[in-house]
Structures are given as C-alpha cells and as structure tokens.
Design a protein around this nucleic acid. Structure first.
Lengths: 188, 188, 188, 188
DNA sequence: TATGAATGAGGTTTCATTCAT
DNA sequence: AATGAATGAAACCTCATTCAT
C-alpha cells in the first residue's frame, strides 16, 4: 500500500508532464522506486492505472469538498463555498486538478461509466436542484448548470495558473470569479 | 497539396476518435489513400502533423469568424455574433472543435508559442478591449475575459453534444448561453 | 550473460560478413536465438552493440597476449612473441581480427575515447619504451613504433588470408614478417 | 559532368565523415546542389556511386603517381619517389586517401574484381619485380611486398594525421619512414 | 509480494529508388 | 538531362506485459 501510493504519485507527476502515452510504465516504476513488474501486481494494465488514478484524484477532491459542506448551511453560502473551495483545492493540488481535465478531455473518459459520472456529480447537482427549487438559481437543466459551473471553474483555474499571482490577488480573482458566475446563474 | 489536405482530414478524424497516441501514422496514411512515407514527406514527424493540424483548424475557425465580423458594426452585436457563430461553427465542425479542446488540454499545447497563442486571440481580445474602453464590459484583464468567454463556449458546446437537440432547442440553448455570459461580463 | 555472449557472437559473424549497415538487428537477434527486444535490453542502441563488440574483441586479444608475456623474459623474445602470437591469434580468430580492422577503419572509431585507446595499447607501448631504454629499439616516438608494428601485423595477416597456405608456409611467412619489422625497428 | 563532379565531391566528404550508411543519398544531392533524382541519373544505385567514387579516387592517385615516375629512372629513386610521393599526395588529399582505406576495409571491396585490383597495382608490382630481378629487393612474393608496402604507407599516414606536425616534421617523418621500409625490404 | 530479464508486436521514421513532368 | 513528390519496404527502437525466481 505504501508502494501503491508511490506508484500513483509517480504516475500523476509523469502523466501531467508527459501525457499518458509519453509516460512509459518503466519510468513510473523507476520514479516510484519500484520494480517494473511490481506495477503490474497492483494494476493489471497501464490503463487500469490511468483510470484508478483518475478515480483516486476525484475522490480526493470529493472528500475535501464534503468536509466543508455542512448540511445545515443555507444554499447561498454552500454555493459560494463549493466554488471557492474547489479553486483553493485546485491551487494546492495543481497536478491533480490538471490531471482531471487532461483525463476528461481524452478518449479515456469513455471508460468511466455514466453512472459513476452521475454519482460523482451528486454533490453539485443536488445543490443546484435545491437552488432551483428555492428560486435562488435560474431554472436551467441541472446538467447545463453543472457543465457551465465546471467550465468556469476550469477557466478561472486556467487564468490563475497562467501567470504568477500573490495570495491577495488570487483571493480577489476567485471572489470576482464567484460574483460573475453567481450573476450568471442566480434567479432574477 | 491535394495530398496534404487528405492527410490532415484523415488525421483529424482519427485523432478525435482514437486520440493522438491511439492513432498510428500508418492508419492516417491508409485513410488518406497515401503511402506511409508520403506523410513524412509533408510532415517531418508525427508531432509536426499534430501541431500543423491544430494550426490549420484554428485558422479555419478564425477565417470563418472574421467573415462574419464587420468593422462597422456596433460592439454589442459583434460580441453576440462571435459567441453565437463560434457555436454554430462548432456544431457544423464538431470534430474540428473537439480537436481544438483535445489539443489544448494535452501536453502538446506547450509546442504553440506564447506569441502564436496571443496572435490567434486578437480577434477576441481587440473586441473585448474596445468593449471595456466603451464601458460596455467590466474592466477585467483581457486574458481573464477571454478565458471565461471561451469556457462558456466550450461549456455550451459540451452540453449541446451531450444529447440530441432539435435545431430550435439548439438555438434556445445558445441564446441562453449568450445571455448568461453577457450578464456575467457586461458593465453594470 | 549467456544471452549477451550469444548476441555478441552473432553480431561478430554478421558484421564481418555484411558490414555494420548490412546487418539488421533483427538478423542478429535471430542468429542469437533471442527476441528482438532482448538485444535492446542489453545494448541500448545498435551503435552501443557495435562499440561493445569492439571492446570485447580487443579485450579478448589483450587477455590472450598477456597470457604469453612473462614479466621475467628478456625484451627481444617478448617482442617476437607478441608479434608472432598476435598473428596466430588472428589466424585462429579471423573474424575477430577482421572486425578490429573494419571497426578501426570506419567512422565508428571516434566513439572510442583517446584514453581507452591509449590504455589498450599499454602492453605494446610499455614494451617499446623498455626496448628504447635498453637501446634495443630505435628511439622513435612510441606512437610511431606502435603504428608501424601494427601495420606490419595487419599486412602479414592480410597476406596470409589472401590465399591458402600450409601451416609450414604460414610459420615461415610470420617469421619473415617478424624479421622485417625487427630489421626496421631495431637499434643499429 | 559538372554535376557528376559535384556529386562525387559531396559523396567523398560525407562518406568519410559519416560512413557509407550514415550518408543518405538525399544529403549527397543536397550538398552537391542537385535534385535527389539527378543523382540516380548519373549512378544507377547508391552502390554504383560508392564504387565509382573509389575508382575515381584510385585513378586520381594513379595519375598523380605516374606523373612523377619516369621510365628512365633508376630503381632506387623510383622506389623512394613512389613512397614519398604517395604520402604527400595523401596529406594533400586526406579525405581521398582516407576513403581508400575505408573502402578497402569494408565489405564493399569484394565488388572490385581481382583483375581490376591487380591492374591498379601494376605500377607498384612491376617496380618491385624489377627491384627483385636486379637484386635490390629481397626475393619475397610480389604480393607480400605490395601488401607490406601499402600497410606501412597507411601506417605512416595514420601517424602523420594523428597529431599536428609542421612541414619540416612531416618531411622528417616521411624520410625516416622511407629509410625504415627500405631497410625492411632491401636486398641484403 | 516483489523482482527484472525477456518477449515480440507494433510504432515511427528513414531512405534508396521511381517516374511524371 | 533534371527535378522532387511519391513510394513502401525495412530499419531501429519502444514498451506493455509475462513469468521464473
């Protein structure tokens, strides 16, 4: 299990830098200080590793989010929390966040079942659904809101990582980003 | 030149379906009805082809956009035009648009010089710059606006291609998408 | 190690017959009864193999020579021994000896560091140096003597392999070759 | 014919630097400022070019030698002339001389018929034959003398090109080399 | 579980050669 | 004679995967 973590960590770093194909399993094993064959004891194929890494990263993010979402909270602060926190998590886990996008924009994504995708989105969609019900959000299809929300989170992240910003600037950008997206989605 | 086009067309179709890695050059040559070596006669390496295809597709889009942007127009309709037209172009050239995103989300993107990227964005940024000057858009950094604008385009595209929609529904979604981004960016 | 030897042996035979270029790695692997990839497991590139084979052959010869050179001997018999023995070794290892010449007359030779070359020559040069000190050899530069000595060896070898000779004839030619080079280099 | 010379010159330079295999015909054509296909109008195959270059170079040397050998001369100065002049020619045509050795030490040599080889050697062998008849040279087989003579010429050349020498030093080395080889072969 | 030598299918690329212009 | 785009066989090499230890 020690080794599993080393393998995942090495794979993350290398996949992000060189891409899935640009990263031979031998290099992953090497960086993980593990023999070539060992990798295949933990993941039957390289593909399995790619997918396992994606799921592991998504789980990381989900855990981090659920830790700051409190059932009793009102919708509006939850909505802001989820946006802001995702971005801070992304900034502190750039490689992981980058990996998510890389994976989701690649043909690998088809290996994740529709069910799993829906499941991973429930934190967001149930929130949006509640928001619509309570007339805080515009009554768009949940999937549309989800897609646009994500797109904009990635957009802000991309902007934040496109240059060097001080923590204060980062905070300001994230807050402004939130205001904009809120403006875009809120019930009028 | 005939052959070059055939190669690019084949590469587009295959890269989108199977990814860069999942597409051997031999398959590209075969689909282009061209000998294997011919591909390397026109593009020194497979990588060169990947990049050339990206630039070719971006140029396509740019040409299509500049054809509908008229210098005399007011800003606001231009702004809407560019959003709406990009999405219609994307719907009519799904593979090309998908390829842009695939490429930009991959490590290949670093092979495009910062200068080229800036150049390819001028149609948009000069419009945004004018919008800010005329107090129609919020005075955010141009790059930020560009990123958010693109995120919205990609988000809507993703939603539109996630299911089957009638032309009327498509039109409605695109318009709503536009209203949202306009709400998000307009000067208040 | 078993396999390494098989690969070297196959490479030797094929390089000598068909040249470096005329020998595909696949043929080497095949003759060595080894998978194609195995060759590259042991030698990172074909070039590495070419160089490794050269060093291995030179080492063979060096070992064979040092086995017949006895520290206590006088110079003159040592000098003769080294000449005669090299030629007998060459006759018994024609491919190896031929490979040395083929390699040294090709652009590959630049891949052997000057240091390595000097090192491989020490058996000879230290002998020549002693010979000069004891006024048995003319005081020419060591490198010159070394070159002429080798030229004579290669010349005799070439003559011996240009036609069929009986062992007695071989012996006579080798001895005459020795007398000539001795006449050429000895102190007068 | 202009072009033929350009092609030969380019081939010489490139073959010597990169070897036969290391030199693609396209590079030869490029360096000769000639289209790729043109090369094949003059030489049916690359191999033909390799051989033609060898013959051309050998002819060059032969012409140069025959120009300084005068039928009326005595043997001894002829013998010296041929040795000394070959080395000066070699120093002034290093690439050509190097090419001769590279070619003759490679499997390409078998493409030169025994007859041609014998023919190219007549200048030397007839001289040696006369020398033996007149009891100026030891009565060794002509081929042996020829081989050793050549070996030593190459040896001296190799030594001369292994470091930087002034013209005076060169002259001294060549003269000493001559004395040695004369000592080796002369009738005693 | 861990290792790493061995495998061999398959990928990218090279290059001598052809041929229509 | 000259050109250079096109060809496609074949070369080198990579790499995911296996398996005996």
């Amino acid at each position: 299990m020690e080794k599993q973590q080393q393998i995942l960590a090495a794979a993350l770093k290398l996949f992000v830098e060189f891409g899935f194909h640009g990263t031979p399993t031998s290099k992953i094993a090497e960086m993980a200080s593990v023999a070539n064959g060992t990798l295949f004891h933990h993941y039957k194929t390289k593909n399995d590793l790619v997918v396992a890494l994606y799921n592991s990263v998504k789980e990381d993010l989900a855990k981090s989010l659920s830790a700051i979402i409190h059932g009793s909270d009102f919708i509006t602060p939850k909505f802001k929390n989820i946006f802001v926190h995702t971005l801070y998590w992304a900034l502190n886990n750039r490689e992981k966040f980058y990996y998510i996008r890389q994976f989701e924009s690649s043909p690998h994504i088809v290996k994740i079942s529709a069910e799993t995708i829906k499941e991973q989105a429930t934190v967001h969609t149930s929130l949006f659904e509640e928001g619509i019900r309570k007339k805080l959000l515009q009554p768009h299809p949940l999937e549309l809101i989800y897609t646009l929300f994500n797109s904009q989170v990635f957009g802000i992240f991309q902007y934040l990582t496109s240059a060097e910003f001080t923590p204060e600037e980062e905070k300001k950008i994230i807050n402004e980003g939130y205001e904009m997206i809120w403006e875009m989605l809120r019930y009028k």
